[in-house]
Design a protein around this nucleic acid. Structure first.
Length: 262
DNA sequence: ATGGTAGGTCTCCTA
């Protein structure tokens, strides 16, 4: 039966609970993974989601920054969270559905402004985070798993509005793209979004700083859906809900969806 | 070359 998953960097789940509810009502995914919830877990308005059919949640949070949550219509078991690069940040949580599918929800560090770890500690932390993700998946190969989240890297030339202009901009530098590829290879992860939409420009994030984000269209594909090879063939119908970026009081990210016939 | 916006927390940090 079809199983639909979505990922969305929400930039404060408390402020934007009304549009989370709207997305769930409009689109009805089985699972919605949120990043940048910016809330301790006990202050996430879970009842707002439970009353429309999303009665299950696994989450990690902290005050003010980061935070990840998986909202689900289906029962989901908390199977832990990793603190890659030992940052003490809530950037990962994993859940397992009753059909045995494991869901990893990630919020990879953005990495600061300068793409040089000798002058920008945050860039080093981002690279270390990716290295530890890679080593973790190498040591314990995922099976029947879906990995989603804001990975804060746009890997392909057509994942950014200008490959040339962004080559030195954090999120699209060669070292980040290379490390992302190593992490992907380590888990044999298949990029489901690009499996379904192989050609053309595709973005999931547009800066708040543009005067008219849609007209300028200076986007980047920072949000990803990956799956292991044992279920990647079951995936179809990937889409980015660009219109959501234009909703009232929007997140700067649009949700990314994929459906699996499991 | 620069500054532009947004959210959370406690006057600045992060994105």
């Amino acid at each position: 039966m079809p199983f639909t998953i979505a990922t969305w960097n929400i930039n404060s789940v408390r402020l934007r609970a009304p549009i989370v509810q709207k997305l769930l009502l409009d689109e009805g995914p089985d699972v919605l993974c949120l990043q940048e919830t910016k809330s301790p877990v006990d202050k996430i308005p879970a009842e707002v989601f439970a009353e429309i059919g999303y009665g299950h949640m696994v989450a990690r949070g902290q005050k003010g920054y980061n935070g990840v949550a998986i909202l689900s219509k289906l029962p989901i078991e908390d199977v832990g969270a990793e603190d890659f690069a030992s940052l003490g940040h809530a950037r990962h949580v994993a859940g397992r559905l009753e059909n045995g599918v494991t869901i990893h929800n990630f919020y990879v560090p953005a990495g600061g402004d300068v793409a040089d770890r000798t002058v920008n500690e945050k860039f080093g932390q981002k690279l270390d985070y990716l290295t530890e993700m890679r080593d973790w998946f190498r040591g314990d190969k995922p099976e029947k798993a879906i990995l989603v989240g804001d990975l804060n890297i746009a890997p392909r030339e057509d994942d950014v509005w200008s490959h040339k202009k962004l080559l030195k901009v954090v999120s699209h530098t060669p070292i980040e793209v290379e490390q992302m590829a190593e992490t992907q290879d380590a888990g044999n992860w298949v990029d489901i979004t690009r499996q379904d939409i192989p050609d053309g420009q595709l973005y999931s994030w547009w800066s708040y700083r543009a005067k008219d984000w849609s007209a300028a269209d200076k986007g980047r594909r920072l949000d990803h859906v990956w799956a292991t090879p044992d279920i990647s063939n079951a995936a179809h119908s990937s889409r980015v809900l660009r219109d959501v970026r234009g909703w009232e009081k929007p997140s700067d990210h649009a949700p990314v969806f994929a459906t699996f016939d499991l």
